[in-house]
């Protein structure tokens, strides 16, 4: 019998483990950490290669501030609505005693729809709610209601929010479903036998238990919408003034090429998504004090 491999010296085994983890670490550094840090550092370097705050200061123009503001509003609205509607649908499917096969169908569909973002989604909404879209036409010819004359525009805040919901709601559904499954049946029964109505159960027990998961998903949905560009670009081309499209234009050199300003725009995006996550961490740390 030859010596078993396990008899190798601890040092050699340790280095072998590192060899297995090394590709992952190198990959994370090369394609996540370094590019992002290098880019963000660029926000503080001027054309002459010196440290400067000029790029940051250049962000404070009306157009850029307006872009950030509308991006925050769209991301916020689509995240909050997506989370609320997704939660309601998840509760309906899981706790509403609907036929069991419905749940499997909805979860599968959610997997598809949450990944059906980008350019094709934009096409679908143009075909639905665009000026020649099916719903627009049916509303006009059958109900005599002109959506666009009433002030609706697919290329607006509400139009974009409505489109984003198509992937935000399913994402919420997918993430929150396991948390709802974790609500024990006995909790609701204990509340009932103590005199609580279904509403009181959700008010005092059910929703507070789900709250940290809801918040976590909310910040994820926000980041998801805030960085999304393909859907908006497919919908509007470069005409809509939101931050990712502005940055896209900067990178393509469609607008005045200013690498420092582009980096500053990116820094602003990262800071805002980071902020959303920090708010989540702070609130959930307080909400989760009853957890291990």
């Amino acid at each position: 019998m030859t010596q078993p491999a396990a008899a190798a010296s601890p040092r050699r085994r340790l280095s072998f483990e590192w060899l297995g983890v090394a590709p992952f670490i190198v990959f994370a550094l090369m394609f996540l950490a370094f590019p992002t840090l290098y880019l963000l550092a660029g926000a503080f370097i001027g054309r002459d290669g010196q440290f400067t705050f000029d790029n940051i200061a250049a962000l404070f123009t009306d157009q850029i501030i307006a872009a950030y503001w509308i991006s925050i509003r769209i991301s916020g609205a689509s995240a909050i609505l997506g989370a609320a509607i997704g939660l309601a649908m998840a509760l309906a499917i899981i706790r509403g005693r609907l036929p069991a096969p419905l749940r499997a169908a909805v979860m599968t569909f959610s997997g598809v729809a949450s990944n059906f973002a980008g350019v094709p989604l934009a096409f679908a909404f143009i075909a639905t709610l665009g000026r020649l879209g099916l719903v627009t036409i049916i509303l006009k010819t059958v109900f005599g209601f002109d959506l666009y004359r009433a002030g609706f525009n697919l290329l607006s805040f509400w139009g974009l929010t409505l489109t984003y919901l198509y992937f935000q709601i399913p994402l919420m559904l997918l993430i929150i479903a396991p948390a709802i499954d974790g609500l024990k049946k006995e909790w609701s029964e204990a509340a009932q036998i103590l005199g609580a109505s279904p509403w009181q159960f959700w008010r005092y027990i059910g929703l507070p238990i789900l709250w940290p998961s809801v918040l976590g998903t909310l910040s994820l949905l926000f980041a998801n919408a805030f960085g999304a560009i393909a859907t908006a670009y497919g919908l509007t081309g470069s005409s809509l003034n939101i931050v990712p499209i502005l940055l896209y234009a900067q990178i393509r050199g469609d607008a005045l090429q200013n690498p420092g300003l582009g980096a500053a725009l990116a820094l602003g995006m990262v800071l805002i998504t980071a902020c959303a996550n920090i708010i989540y961490l702070v609130i959930s740390a307080r909400a989760e004090r009853w957890m291990k």
């Binding site: 024990k184 006995e186 909790w187 029964e189 204990a190 509340a191 009932q192 036998i193 103590l194 005199g195 609580a196 109505s197 005092y204 027990i205 507070p208 238990i209 009853w290 957890m291």
Partner: peptide, 21 residues
């Protein structure tokens, strides 16, 4: 309904509300 019966119940798996002290 259960919430109208004025009964007390103890469950096998405790079923304490985890979010309340």
């Amino acid at each position: 309904k259960p919430n109208q019966r004025k009964l007390g119940m103890v469950f096998q798996a405790y079923a304490l509300f985890p979010n309340l002290n």
